[in-house]
Simulated scan of single mutants.
Amino acid sequence: MALRLKLRLIRTFVITTSGLIVYTIADKFYEPVLKPALQLLDPETAHDLAIFAAKHGLVPKDKGKDWSGLSCEVWGRQFQNPIGLAAGFDKHGECVDAMLSTGFGFVEVGSVTPEPQDGNPKPRIFRLEKDRAVINRCGFNSVGSFLVSERLRKRLSDVRKAQPGVVGVNLGKNRDTQDAKLDYEKGVVAFADIADYLVINVSSPNTPNLRNLQQKNQLVDLLEHVIAVRDATLKERSPNGRPPILVKISPDLSDEELKDIVDACMQLSIDGIVISNTTVQRPPDLLEKKVAEEKGGLSGPPLNKISNALIQKVYKMTDGRLVIVGVGGVSSAEDAYDKIRAGASLIELYTALAYEGPGLVRKIKLGLSELLQRDGFQSVQEAVGKDVILSTVPYGMRN
């Protein structure tokens, strides 16, 4: 009872004071005071509290002006900057505008499943404090596509409140669904006319057999169906343009598996690939050995080099003709820059927010601007893939 009371008191303290904290000394207060208070809570409760704060406007707004070179056009959509919030934070579409106001150029909602589901039993999120990493095995906990789509439609209907920025939706399948195509079809129908892009998530390690959908024949079959459904849905609703379709892949693929996925994406003219999801690998240099024994996907700095290697491989395999969204272990401007030079046109982060606070977004943008200008680049696009030597053999002529 004493522990429960303590946690309730901490929760009440954070909720009632966070507004004052954010709008007065925001980032300076986060590290010495707010962060330790949040870390007394279990990770999922802390995350729920962060969502609560964002929903109620208790997050710092980025009032700075981005360097013009950060602006980029991808899929015919204008991004004020290439730094986005990865799927997993705002699973239910509750605080899109709040997160855009913190300085993100785009927000990816989800993963969203067609029907509501609780996900895996708790506890299911674990901090690796010394590694500044997280292990999760949430298992697509979702309020379902109907409620999320209604929230996104509502924000679009009020142009006075909707923040400028690109909003994507990450689609998953329900745990017990036998025909995955039907679930992704439902997701596409629900979001095709309101999402700026759609991500087909076939790589979470926490839903049984989901990663099997990355096998080439299954993936081609799924993506063909998704494309057909998107086009048919939009034809009926007569929208302004079609949302690009991306595939989010695992970092735990063999080179052969990776090639099969790239072949499928190129064959079907998929618009992009998100690299990568969390990993089931446990790098030997992890400091939190005991926590690392927990099952689930590992995110944060230990994933950084793994995802960077995949980004370089895919960029080289496609001669830079497939848009890459780089995610995994980004916690600094240098991390973001490395992914861009490896071949990513856009960058996403999430885990680092739990350790650094929302002021991290502005820090990354400022640092990235300095790095680009230091190396003589006038824009983000100029730096994409600069660390990769492309093959001289055209993709379509390879064996």
Rank of each mutant, 00 (worst) to 15 (best):
D196Q: 07
D196W: 01
Y197Q: 11
V199I: 14
I200C: 02
I200F: 10
N201G: 08
V202R: 09
V202S: 07
S203N: 02
S204Q: 09
S204Y: 06
P205S: 06
P205V: 03
N206P: 12
N206T: 11
L210H: 05
L213W: 02
Q214S: 08
Q214L: 11
Q214Y: 10
Q215R: 13
N217R: 14
Q218K: 12
L219R: 00
V220Q: 04
D221V: 07
D221T: 11
L222N: 01
E224S: 11
H225D: 08
V226C: 01
V226T: 01
I227W: 07
A228G: 05
V229H: 10
D231G: 04
A232F: 08
A232N: 14
T233C: 14
L234Y: 02
L234S: 13
E236I: 09
E236D: 13
S238W: 06
S238T: 14
P239A: 03
N240F: 12
N240V: 12
G241W: 04
R242W: 03
P244Q: 14
P244G: 13
I245L: 15
L246G: 00
L246R: 07
V247G: 03
V247F: 12
V247A: 11
K248G: 03
K248F: 02
I249E: 03
S250N: 04
L253N: 03
L253P: 02
S254H: 11
E256L: 10
L258V: 07
K259E: 15
D260F: 07
I261D: 07
V262L: 08
Q267C: 09
L268W: 05
L268H: 03
S269A: 15
I270Y: 09
D271V: 09
G272E: 01
I273T: 04
V274E: 04
S276F: 10
S276H: 10
N277Y: 05
N277P: 06
V280N: 04
V280R: 13
V280T: 14
Q281T: 10
R282I: 06
R282Q: 12
P283A: 09
P284W: 09
P284G: 05
P284H: 13
L287D: 10
L287H: 12
L287S: 13
L287P: 05
L287R: 15
E288V: 04
K289M: 07
K289H: 12
K289I: 05
A292I: 04
S299V: 06
P302K: 05
P302Q: 08
L303V: 06
L303P: 04
N304E: 12
N304K: 15
I306H: 06
S307H: 02
N308G: 11
L310Q: 01
L310T: 00
Q312L: 07
Y315E: 05
K316L: 09
M317N: 00
T318W: 11
T318Q: 11
G320H: 06
